[in-house]
Design a protein around this nucleic acid. Structure first.
Length: 337
DNA sequence: GAGTCGTGGCG
DNA sequence: TCGCCAAGACT
C-alpha cells in the first residue's frame, strides 16, 4: 500500500471523525447524509438529517411520501433540487432495484442527484469498495500535497486531481481512507490556518515544503454579484396568510413564496389595507445579492381577493410549516406573524 | 463549460 | 461588513 493512504488510514482511526450520526449506517442513511452534505457544513446538516430520518426511517417510507413533505423537511437547507432528486431516486431504487442500492459506479451516477463524488462516497463508506471522493476537502489536500498552483477550477486541473485521487487509493480499508482524507482536509488541511504540524503527510507535502500552503488551492478571481430587488406582500386575513407557488425555474423553484406586486390589480387594491413595511432583508447567494422588501397587508374577506387558485393557497401559520419554503419566507412568518 | 443553485459560519 | 468556503450536481 502507498505511504500516503497508509498514513491517512492510521491517522483516521485515532484522530478522525468517528461519531457522526450517519457513520457506519445503511446505504440509505449514508446516501441522505451525502446529499445533505453537498456544499453544506456538518453542523448545519445534523438537525436536518435527524428530522429527515425520523420522518422517513427507510427508503420505502420516503418513496411513498409526497414531494411536498420532503420539501418541507428541506426548508431552510438550500439547494432544493437536492430534495426533489432524493425523492426521485428513492422511487427509482424502490421500483427499479427492489429497494437495494446498486453497488457499482455506473448505476449510482445515473441516479438523480448522485454525481461522481457522491457515488464514490457511497461505494467506499457503505460498501467498502474502491470509490473515489473528490470533494472540496480532498481537492485541497491533493492540490497542496502535490503543490498544484494552476487554478483549481480549470478543466485540466480537475482531470489531474481525479487521476491523483485514483492513484492514491489504497488496496483495502476504503472506508477508513475516504473518511480519513475528508477528515484531514476538514480538521487539519483547512483553507485558513492549516495545522501542518499535526499533519501525518506534511513531510512529503509540496506546499508545506515551499511554505505556500495558504495560497493553494489557487482560484481565479470571482465575478461581481448581480443585485436583484424583490418585493413581497404579506397578506393576512383572520388567521390565514396567502402563499403563492414560485415558477418552476430559477432560484427557489417550485417553493412557496409570498405573492408579489402582480397581485395588486385595481380590484384587489381597494380590498387590501396596508399595514407596515417590514425591515429589508439582504439575502446573499453565490452569484446574486437579493434585496427583499416586504409590506404587510390586511384583508377583511379573503374570498373577495382575486387570486390564481391553481398556484395560490391560504394557510395558517401552523400549517405553513408543512410546506416547502425558503429561509427568508420561513423567517418572516416566524418573526412577523 | 461556464452559470446556476441556498444558506451558515468564519476571519 | 464582506468575500470566501463548505461531504457537488446539473444544465
Amino acid at each position: 500500500m502507498n505511504q500516503f493512504s497508509k498514513k491517512i488510514i492510521d491517522w483516521q482511526k485515532s484522530q478522525g471523525r468517528n461519531n457522526l450520526p450517519w457513520q457506519k449506517k445503511s446505504a440509505y442513511e449514508v446516501w441522505i447524509s451525502e446529499i445533505m452534505l453537498q456544499q453544506t457544513q456538518v453542523e448545519t446538516v445534523i438537525p436536518y438529517y435527524e428530522a429527515f430520518i425520523k420522518t422517513f426511517p427507510e427508503i420505502k417510507t420516503l418513496a411513498k411520501s409526497s414531494e411536498e413533505q420532503v420539501m418541507s423537511l428541506w426548508s431552510g437547507l438550500g439547494y432544493y433540487s437536492r430534495a426533489r432528486n432524493i425523492h426521485k431516486t428513492a422511487k427509482i431504487i424502490l421500483n427499479g432495484y427492489g429497494g437495494q442500492f446498486p453497488q457499482d459506479f455506473k448505476n449510482l451516477v445515473e441516479l438523480p442527484g448522485i454525481g461522481p463524488s457522491t457515488a464514490g462516497a457511497i461505494l467506499s463508506l457503505v460498501f467498502e469498495l474502491p470509490g473515489v471522493i473528490l470533494d472540496g476537502n480532498v481537492k485541497r489536500v491533493i492540490t497542496r500535497f502535490k503543490g498544484i498552483t494552476n487554478p483549481i477550477d480549470n478543466n485540466q486541473t480537475q482531470k489531474e486531481l481525479k487521476s491523483f485521487a485514483e492513484a492514491f487509493l489504497p488496496k483495502k480499508f476504503f472506508r477508513e481512507y475516504s473518511q480519513g482524507i475528508m477528515d484531514l482536509g476538514s480538521l487539519l488541511c483547512r483553507p485558513k490556518n492549516p495545522a501542518c504540524n499535526d499533519c501525518p503527510i506534511s513531510k512529503n507535502c509540496q506546499a508545506f515544503k515551499l511554505g505556500i500552503q495558504e495560497k493553494i488551492p489557487f482560484k481565479k478571481p470571482s465575478k461581481p454579484k448581480k443585485e436583484k430587488k424583490i418585493d413581497w406582500l404579506l397578506i393576512s386575513s383572520k388567521n390565514k396568510i396567502l402563499l403563492k407557488r414560485n415558477d418552476n425555474k430559477g432560484i427557489w423553484k417550485n417553493l412557496w413564496l409570498f405573492p408579489d406586486k402582480d397581485i395588486l390589480s385595481k380590484d384587489n387594491i381597494s380590498l387590501l389595507e396596508k399595514k407596515e413595511s417590514l425591515p429589508d432583508i439582504i439575502h446573499n447567494l453565490s452569484h446574486r445579492k437579493l434585496n427583499i422588501s416586504t409590506v404587510k397587508y390586511k384583508l377583511k374577506n379573503k374570498d373577495r381577493l382575486k387570486i390564481d387558485r391553481s398556484s395560490s393557497v391560504w394557510v395558517s401559520k401552523e400549517d405553513s410549516v408543512k410546506m416547502g419554503m425558503p429561509k427568508p419566507i420561513k423567517e418572516i412568518i416566524e418573526n412577523y406573524l
